[in-house]
Design a protein around this nucleic acid. Structure first.
Lengths: 115, 115
DNA sequence: GCCCTATATAGATATTCTTGCATGTTTGCA
DNA sequence: TGCAAACATGCAAGAATATCTATATAGGGC
């Protein structure tokens, strides 16, 4: 019954500004790595590393589409409902309000598509 | 607009097994330090230190009653609703289900009171 | 097959967190 | 005033994290 240990481990993954922002972006619709790197204004390997942390914790899931890999919430899949916690924490998720952020110079298909 | 930074800082306080267990205990009713030390089976200075972390983050509030100091959630007070996050995280809080845990050898008034 | 693009992994290092222990402070009481 | 109980604080060693740079892998098009 190491429940507290497990929940603390899960929260530790969330307790990081960049990872929070990533989740904020993908909580409504999937986004690819290059787009997240553009939004966070961080080098791609850095973003990939944060995604790996979230992936290993079972918080997000990835879906390959050609060379792009799209990440989305892995809700319900793990025992815990991430979106419920995020909702309590981020009352106004950026992804929900502004939708996909079109970033100049981002190579992702959604950014290439007309606004 | 350092929202993510702030939220991450807040989550970091929660992302700790002992602190989670403390919050689980006091989320329904206040408890004093000696009782928490007994429940967690940790030395008093250790518990006091974790309480200080939660207190500095504005998550809990303390109320002195003689030599005892009772701690409870400081909900609504900070901008963020801790109990909402806890509810998403701890679907069945120990404090709510079992009530005050009477611990043999605990010096607190609530433990001294008859069950 | 080869090259380019998108993404992942592997160190390395500075910083922060965790935890135990000794000591300080406040309150109540004789 | 002096002592004891209940808490708080300070410090220090070890563990864990954050972040960067360099490098590796995997798909798609030629």
């Amino acid at each position: 019954m190491d429940t507290y240990q497990d929940q603390a481990r899960l929260l530790k993954c969330l307790a990081h500004p960049m990872r929070l922002q990533i989740l904020d972006q993908i909580c409504q619709a999937e986004e690819c790595v290059c787009h997240l790197a553009a939004v966070l204004a961080k080098p791609q390997p850095y973003v990939s590393q944060q995604l790996a942390v979230l992936r290993n914790a079972g918080l997000i899931r990835d879906r390959r589409e050609g060379t792009h890999i799209f990440y989305g919430l892995a809700d319900e899949q793990a025992g815990i409902h991430i979106s419920a916690i995020l909702a309590a924490l981020l009352p106004a998720p950026a992804g929900a309000i502004r939708g996909h952020a079109h970033i100049a110079g981002c190579c992702c298909p959604r950014c290439a598509a007309p606004e």
